[in-house]
Amino acid sequence: MGTELGKYKVCVSARSTDKEIMWKAQDGGIVTSLFAFALEHGIIDGAIVAGPGARPWQPRPFIATTREELLSARGTKYNISPQVSWLKEATRSFGLDKVGIVGTPCQMQAVRKAQLYPVGMRDVPDKVALAIGIFCMENFPYKSIQMIVEDHAGTKLQATKKMEIGKGKFTVITERGKSIALPLKITHKYEQPGCHVCLDYVANLGDISTGSVGSPDGWSTVFIRTKKGEETWNKAIAAGCFETKPIEQVKPGLDLVSKLANEKISKNKKTVEERATFGVNKALRNPYL
């Protein structure tokens, strides 16, 4: 396909040099470290992150304006966190002029739509200072995560230390160190339907996007995509925030990222097409027309 990874200037494998952040980061601690750096250097006034919510492993989007708050949001919660719901409030109630936001590829699409077609997003377009996209194959409603962890993995959400998707498995790791790996075949039916028309895997519209795929454990694959992204990234590198390796020198490398991106996009394109002839002369709606 050739467009599956979106536009980017550079792609590297990287991990944070900040021990405190790495302690609880999902992968290479890219998101938290970059926001912490940007906050400290006035590149952003705050960032919309997915912090702890009312229930165990339920995310709650909020506007972090301190390093401590950023750190409280480390790690991936595999269920929906409506990040963009705070985008206008960040500029109004919170008075931020330079907003950071992290989100899935669809949320990066939402951010860019808010900038290009600000239907209700008054004064937002000029205030997005750093949008970090995270790779995403699918997401789950909260109830699904409950079923996956409690019914399939047979453990408690409260007792879960980390969840990971990778190498064809949904892995639940408990506080006591037990690791339960479920084949993704089991979890597919719990995905939210909206993900099945999604045509972006590596957050093509982030200023920077990152995920675990393509890099060794504990490292992240990072795409630097826009001028804003490049500027911030270069400053962070100069300040020693990250160790990096050329993506060509790590295993499994970009080939795997491309492969997965193509798989996702072609599967979901097929879904979009099937929706067009779903009934007898009746279509399900196509948002891309």
Partner: peptide, 12 residues
């Protein structure tokens, strides 16, 4: 079946 929970609507 198209909503993916981005939150744009609430912000708008």
């Amino acid at each position: 079946g198209l909503c993916m929970g981005c939150g744009s609507c609430a912000a708008a």
